[in-house]
C-alpha cells in the first residue's frame, strides 16, 4: 500500500552495495546529544520546533552521549567547559560526528581578542566534521550544515577508516 510497492516494478528486490546501505541508514537518523551552551542553543531549539523541523531529517535529541551519534556544539566554549566536552566526546561510541555551530565554537567568535576564559574554537580540543558559520546561524544554515554532514557520511566506506 502506498508509494513503496509502486517503486519496484520487478518485485521487491533492491540491489545495493553494503557501504551504501550502511551509509544511508546512518545518515537518515543522526541522533544528536541535546547539548546547548549559549545563544546558538536557542536557534538549535528553534530548528527542532515545528517551524523548521529537524525531526523530518531523522534528528532526535537524546539525553546521554552513550546513545548519541552526533553532538552539535552550539555556543561559546569556555576553558572550564572544554574539559567536560572532551569527556563527553570520549563517552560517545563510534561512529561519531561533531557539528560546530556558530562563530564562537568555530574560532572564538566575538570574544577572540580579550576573552581570557574563552577557548578559541572547539577544534583545539576535539576533531570537528562540519563548521556552521553565523552569530547565531539561522535555522536554515544549521539545516544546511546537517545536509553537508549527510553528504560526508554518504561518502564513507567500511573498509577505509575515516579520520
Amino acid at each position: 500500500m502506498g508509494l513503496l510497492d509502486k517503486e519496484f516494478s520487478d518485485g521487491n528486490i533492491v540491489i545495493a552495495k553494503v557501504d551504501d546501505l550502511f551509509n544511508w541508514a546512518r545518515l537518515s537518523s543522526v541522533w544528536q546529544l541535546g547539548f546547548g551552551l549559549a545563544c546558538c542553543a536557542i536557534e538549535m531549539m528553534a530548528t527542532s520546533m515545528s517551524h523548521y523541523d529537524f525531526d523530518r531529517f531523522g534528528v532526535i535529541p537524546r539525553n546521554t552521549p552513550r546513545q548519541a551519534d552526533a553532538i552539535i556544539i552550539s555556543g561559546t566554549v569556555t576553558l572550564k567547559m572544554a574539559l567536560r566536552i572532551k569527556r563527553l566526546y570520549e563517552q560517545m561510541p563510534e561512529p561519531k560526528y561533531i557539528i560546530s555551530m556558530g562563530s564562537c565554537a568555530n574560532c572564538g567568535g566575538p570574544y577572540w581578542e580579550h576573552g581570557y576564559h574563552v577557548l578559541k574554537g572547539i577544534d583545539r580540543v576535539i576533531p570537528v566534521d562540519v563548521y556552521v558559520p553565523g552569530c547565531p546561524p539561522r535555522p536554515e544554515a544549521l539545516l544546511e550544515g546537517l545536509l553537508k554532514l549527510q553528504e560526508k557520511i554518504r561518502n564513507e566506506s567500511l573498509r577505509k577508516k575515516s579520520a
Partner: peptide, 14 residues
Amino acid sequence: LGYLHRCFEKHAEA
C-alpha cells in the same frame, strides 16, 4: 557557575 563566563566586562573596557 562559570561554565559560560565570556569576559563581557573585560571586553567592555577595551
